[in-house]
Structures are given as C-alpha cells and as structure tokens.
C-alpha cells in the first residue's frame, strides 16, 4: 500500500495505480474527457491535470497517467489547475458549441461564454481520440484514425479512404464523450448511396 495525500486527505493507493484511479477510488472528483477504463490513457485532453509538490516546488501533471508514489502530495483544484481547465473549456466551448456535455462541464467551472470565435456551430468533436483507441485496442480493426496534423487534424478513416474495415460494432459511438462520433460513422463507412454506386462517400 502506498500512502499519499489528495487535497489534504490521507489516502491509500496500490502500486501501479495512477493518481486518477486513486482519486476516484476515494470519491474525489477529477474531470476527464479522453479517459476510458477500456483503453490505454493517452493524455490528450489535459482536463485531468493536478498539481503535485509543495509550497517550495510544484508542477502540473495529468492524473490519468501520473503514477502514484509514497508521500505524493496532490491538489486537484488549485488555482493553477483551475486556470488550465478553464482555458481548455473556454476554447472547447468555441470549438464545439453543439456539445451539451462540453457546455455543462464548462458551466461547472464557471465558463458560460467564450471570447473566441466559432467556425462551425454544428461541431461536437474535441479530437480526444477515444474512438480511434477503442477501435484499435478493443475492437482490433483500426478502421478509424486521426488524419492530418495540428489545427488540420480530424477524425476519419485512415488516409481519408472509405474503410470497409469497420464492423459497425458501435464501440466508438459508445465511448465518444460528446456524441460527435454518431455523425461521423457514415463518413467512415461511406454512405449507403455511395457504397451502392461503388464510389465511396467521403
């Protein structure tokens, strides 16, 4: 057993656990978007950040991947942590205004409006990559992937080619934290009309 402190509370963790697992085991809430028990953590959404250390030295780490250690002192709601979460949520609010989940989470952190312009009022996808990971790690077919880099990144079928690797299992739709995946599935499999005409339906 490993003894550590989260938000001033003495808690115990098992060797190999992450800070997030330990917090949840002890009923301490840390928000996440790209985390799912079924797949390996990837550290993409950064919402689960926590501050470790003390008054003299501290740093921000992501709780979903940071391993527990004896004597670790974790703050899940410090000003630095809140600053990261608020800005992420304010940016997500502008990025995918159509997602009720994002709006609710933002409201939880007092973010009701965003200073940033929105380019697509129907967007829901936050590019957390959960759909890609579940398709690879759980289903084992890798029918979806992230395409492109940086601001041009999107979710689609590998190389943007309509994929018949998809077995329509719906795992990606299930794990998607914002409901964005249901609208994308046809684009990956090709819409019916497109498939029948043999053209694909990008």
């Amino acid at each position: 057993m490993i003894n550590m402190v989260i938000d001033g509370r003495q808690v115990q963790a098992q060797t190999g656990w992450t800070v997030l697992e330990t917090a949840r085991q002890n009923g301490i809430h840390i928000p996440t978007l790209c985390h799912h028990e079924a797949v390996e953590p990837s550290g993409a959404c950064r919402l689960c950040v926590v501050e470790i250390g003390d008054e003299t030295w501290s740093k921000i780490v992501i709780s979903c991947m940071y391993p527990v250690a004896e004597g670790l002192n974790v703050k899940t709601d410090s000003p630095r942590v809140k600053n990261v979460r608020r800005w992420i949520l304010e940016m997500l609010l502008a990025q995918c205004p159509a997602s009720p989940e994002i709006r609710a989470l933002a409201a939880e952190y007092g973010v009701q409006t965003t200073r940033f312009v929105n380019h697509d009022p129907n967007e829901q996808c936050i590019l957390c990559g959960l759909c890609v990971r579940v398709c690879k790690e759980v289903v084992g077919v890798s029918a979806i992937s992230t395409i492109g880099r940086g601001v041009h990144k999107k979710i689609g079928s590998p190389y943007g080619v309509v994929s018949d690797a998809c077995v329509a299992c719906g795992s990606c739709v299930t794990v998607c934290p914002t409901g964005a995946m249901s609208a994308r599935l046809d684009a990956i499999r090709g819409v019916h009309a497109g498939r029948e005409a043999g053209k694909g339906g990008k």
């Binding site: 950064r46 992420i88 940016m91 590019l127 992230t146 940086g150 601001v151 990144k153």
Partner: peptide
C-alpha cells in the same frame, strides 16, 4: 509552432491558434 503542433493535446492545438488570433 501552430503549424507544427501535432494536435494531440488541446492546450497546444487550440491554444496556440487562439494566442495568435
């Protein structure tokens, strides 16, 4: 850096664009 960001994490992918704006 906005152009070179890999886009995996949100602070970099969205944040650099917003700072630049």
């Amino acid at each position: 850096l906005e152009e070179e960001s890999c886009g995996k994490c949100i602070p970099c992918r969205l944040g650099l664009t917003r700072m630049r704006e």
